[in-house]
Design a protein around this nucleic acid. Structure first.
Length: 273
DNA sequence: ACTAACCTGGTC
DNA sequence: GACCAGGTTAGT
């Protein structure tokens, strides 16, 4: 469920359910969630009103009326379900908020990797880069954030301190759109490539957000690179390749991504003329 | 900068 | 049974 468009959709659901509501009870139903949200945290949030709900990247923040914050991250498989408190809990319910209007907000998370934390104030929240959709995210902004970093650009895009909100799917899509080889060392990208990349990130997510949830539903605009191994590149017809970078699948077109940098790092290029 | 770890479920 | 998964982080 959780790339940026799905999280955005989930936040809207959460916002609607919690607007002006108070928390009647809070429970972690899985030991993995209990590790970060213990009964003592539950006691702190009961009775509090949910003042506002915000999203930063793929993180969700529920600001309570005493200045404390519930911080939620779906990780790989989380989503919100909203039902009545009288209804039975769905499968994979990991965390539950009961509200004062009889509604129940449920973190449904099959893999139970999702995280719920309570912070007494907002000072310990995660440090995140600019939003992927921020118009201020231009070539100059990217250059300063990638300066001196030799990690492959694909890995850098997944680093939420560099840019907030880009996941494995849209990293592949943005690099395909910008025609950049995902293995290129970040600091090796020239201004023209950074310009295309900044534009590609914003455009890729703009399109995805306009049709949120489409990946899980399989509807809407098809993806160009992600999960298309062996299928023809929609730009040049060459087969899309799959490689593994830092343990994650990367999909890209070997033929038309990489005009702006060596396809491999100088270190492994030994032997070339 | 990569690997393992965190979890469970789906697919080959 | 083995491998894969939309994320993040701790440890090496």
């Amino acid at each position: 469920v959780p790339e940026l468009p799905e999280v955005e959709l989930a936040v809207r659901t959460l916002r609607e359910a919690t607007a002006d509501r108070s928390i009647v009870s809070a429970r972690a139903l899985h030991p993995a969630v209990r590790r970060t949200f213990a009964p003592r945290h539950a006691r702190r949030v009961v009775g509090r009103r949910i003042a506002r709900v915000e999203r930063r990247g793929k993180h969700q923040f529920l600001y309570l009326d005493d200045g404390s914050v519930l911080h939620v991250h779906f990780r790989m498989s989380g989503d919100w379900h909203v039902t009545r408190s009288s209804e039975p809990l769905p499968a994979h319910a990991r965390f539950v908020l009961e509200l004062d209007d009889g509604a129940r907000v449920i973190l449904v998370d099959p893999r139970a990797l999702g995280v719920v934390e309570w912070h007494a104030d907002g000072s310990a929240l995660p440090v995140l880069g600019p939003e992927a959709t921020d118009p201020a995210l231009d070539a100059a902004a990217l250059r300063s954030r990638l300066a001196g970093r030799r990690i492959p650009i694909k890995a850098a895009l997944l680093d939420q301190r560099v840019i907030a909100g880009v996941g494995n799917i849209y990293a592949a899509e943005a690099l395909w759109r910008a025609r950049i080889d995902p293995r290129t060392p970040s600091s090796a990208l020239d201004d023209a490539a950074l310009d295309r990349l900044a534009e590609a990130i914003r455009e890729t997510l703009r399109i995805a957000l306009a049709d949120p949830g489409r990946y899980s539903s399989g509807e809407g605009t098809p993806l160009d690179a992600y999960d298309r191994e062996g299928e023809p590149c929609r730009r040049c017809g060459s087969p899309i390749r799959r490689i593994v970078q830092s343990g994650r699948s990367t999909f890209y077109c070997e033929a038309c991504q990489g005009e702006d940098g060596p396809p491999v790092t100088p270190r492994t290029r030994a032997g070339r003329p």
